[in-house]
């Protein structure tokens, strides 16, 4: 896809001010997102993937509690370009929920318990498009139908507690899609759901994306989901991108030891023998972001680390097949079996 990117993030950094000093949650993250594309953002909890997406939505607390660095240029529907990180709060609000929207991880708590779901979907339409209350509600009904909620128009007057988790997540999706956004950020939208419901929601997202041509940033730690939905994959560790590239090479021939570790910690069943492949957990834990190691952040947990890894941070460098890897030893490891 060689079009003008919808979203171009350069050197994004997010730092929280804490009692114990500045906490770098996201460091130097850059990526491009084109229309119709799905980018999977993968990492353990605490890797900075959620914070990065919240920062793009400007939903992190304001300065001085959080400071943002870098830029995030967004190409709006009218062709204008805006830096999401520098946009005035009012202007940002007009984009949010309109051209860029977001689905959250917790469908059970992300809907307001005292308002009817129809109203909750309609209010974004009323606010962004100036629609009448009636027209907005009618549109909300269509959206509910589109996301596969049975008896959609009657459900408009339901309260969130009337609905199951899967149904609530569909409502959240309907809400996010209410104004046909150009970019959708989905932060682990299926994590809290049953596996069957998970598959339905993924299917639904794919369909809707196909119909509207919107770009999706899909945040997950579930590599099965990545294989299902992503065009490109970006792996984050301790606030940094450690590997980035097209889905198939990254998932089948990972270069960074961390990506390999993630892949090996996913249970798989060998279809021929019906036996399970050996499962290996990554030893150790994510480093304390207040006390990051001076070299490669993954080095303390890495089986292939050598003294040089711990001495200085490795650069993010091209590693063939259009991918980027942040590992001093990727060449040596590429020859060794995974």
């Amino acid at each position: 896809m060689a079009q003008e990117p919808l979203l171009e993030v350069s050197h994004l950094s997010v730092t929280f001010a804490t009692e114990n000093g500045p906490l770098p949650a996201v460091r130097d993250v850059s990526f491009r997102l084109s229309a119709g594309e799905t980018l999977a953002l993968v990492g353990e909890s605490g890797s900075g993937k959620s914070v990065a997406s919240l920062a793009l939505m400007r939903l992190v607390p304001p300065a001085p509690r959080v400071s943002l660095g870098g830029s995030a240029h967004f190409c709006a529907a009218d062709g204008s370009r805006h830096d999401l990180l520098a946009l005035a709060p009012d202007a940002m609000r007009r984009l949010r929920g309109n051209e860029i929207s977001m689905i959250f991880q917790e469908p059970m708590t992300s809907l307001n318990p005292v308002h009817r779901i129809g109203e909750q979907i309609a209010e974004a339409i009323i606010f962004h498009q100036g629609a009448s209350h009636r027209a907005a509600l009618a549109r909300a009904g269509e959206l509910l139908e589109k996301v596969g909620i049975p008896d959609a128009h009657r459900r408009l007057s339901a309260f969130p507690h009337h609905l199951s988790g899967g149904m609530r997540q569909r409502v959240m999706i309907a809400m996010a899609l209410a104004c046909t956004p150009r970019v959708l950020i989905a932060d682990e939208p299926t994590t809290a759901l049953d596996v069957t419901v998970q598959a339905q929601i993924l299917e639904l997202l794919k369909e809707l994306q196909h119909a509207n041509g919107m770009a999706v940033v899909f945040i997950t730690h579930n590599l099965g989901v990545v294989a299902e939905i992503a065009d490109r994959v970006m792996v984050m560790y301790a606030g940094l991108i450690v590997e980035e590239g097209a889905m198939v090479p990254v998932m089948t021939r990972p270069r960074m030891p961390y990506t390999r570790g993630l892949l090996h910690s996913v249970p798989r069943i060998d279809p021929e023998t019906l036996g399970s492949a050996p499962l290996t957990a990554i030893p150790g834990t994510v480093p304390d972001p207040l006390h990051l190691p001076p070299g490669c952040a993954f080095a303390p947990r890495c089986a292939h680390a050598e003294p040089a890894c711990a001495a200085a941070p490795p650069p993010l460098e091209p590693a063939g097949e259009g991918r980027l890897v942040r590992c001093r030893r990727w060449r040596a490891l590429a020859e060794a079996p995974a």
Partner: peptide, 10 residues
């Protein structure tokens, strides 16, 4: 908040 979620336990 995200900050609290991220901040390690003292």
């Amino acid at each position: 908040s995200a900050a609290e979620a991220l901040a390690p336990a003292p």
